[in-house]
């Protein structure tokens, strides 16, 4: 039976699961989800198309096709992951495939914000540590337990100090990463700001 996707909701304080490693710098969002899959009015079917072209090229040898990775939830990547297009379809596709957290050397800005906004924490580690982890995963299974409160990832015999932006960490712990309701709490302040801005009247046709 096919599992039904349930998006994350509320506080995110613990994530545990098997790691999947994807090697390469500057992996862009066109590769994560090619543009032809953006012809949709919802995100539902994106999971199966994640890395579609890279997977076809590798004919079953892509990490996202390997049987042993089928139930992985923590993606380990290199530098500038998610560069390029702002398409949220990219993290949505990863999430719908099964990814719940990403650990990498570095992330592109818009991709990072999109991940936060949909509840995928992105952590960074040094290049050296990432490579050690990736080498390990090449040969053995790695299960991590991520503790958001203390920014730690634990295995049986190893503790990693993960880095994450403090504002992101707090948002995951409070549930505020799902930002709309928090933003709406300041409705009066928003109205005030609108009335204060010097240029609202400049676009007279818009009022």
């Amino acid at each position: 039976m096919e599992s039904v996707f349930t998006p994350p909701i509320g506080k995110i304080s613990h994530i545990s699961g098997k790691c999947i490693s994807l090697n390469g710098n500057d992996i862009d969002t066109d590769r994560i989800i090619p543009a032809r899959f953006l012809k949709c009015v919802n995100f539902d079917s994106l999971g199966e198309s994640v890395f579609e072209d890279d997977r076809k090229t590798l004919k079953g040898r892509h990490p996202f096709d390997l049987e042993e990775n089928k139930d992985a939830t923590i993606l380990v990547v290199n530098s500038n992951f998610g560069c390029g297009s702002s398409r949220e379809h990219a993290p949505q596709a990863l999430m719908r495939w099964g990814i719940k957290a990403i650990i990498g050397e570095s992330f592109a800005d818009i991709f990072y914000s999109n991940c936060i906004a949909i509840g995928i924490p992105c952590f960074t580690l040094s290049k050296k540590l990432i490579q050690e982890i990736q080498n390990y995963i090449d040969n053995k299974f790695l299960f991590l337990e991520i503790d958001m409160k203390n920014s730690l990832a634990k295995t049986k015999d190893l503790i990693l100090n993960l880095e994450i932006k403090e504002s992101s960490r707090k948002m995951f712990l409070s549930g505020e990463w799902d930002a709309t309701s928090t933003l709406l709490e300041n409705e009066n302040l928003i109205e005030n700001k609108f009335n204060q801005l010097p240029y609202i009247k400049f676009n007279s046709h818009l009022t």
Binding site: H89, I110, S113, N114, I118, A179, T182, L183, L184, I190
Partner: peptide, 19 residues
């Protein structure tokens, strides 16, 4: 540029959360 969840936030509140 922003993603779709932030497009939702701008539509609903005309604001976004950003560093």
């Amino acid at each position: 540029g922003i993603g779709t969840s932030q497009v939702r936030d701008v539509l609903a509140t005309q604001t976004i959360a950003m560093n």
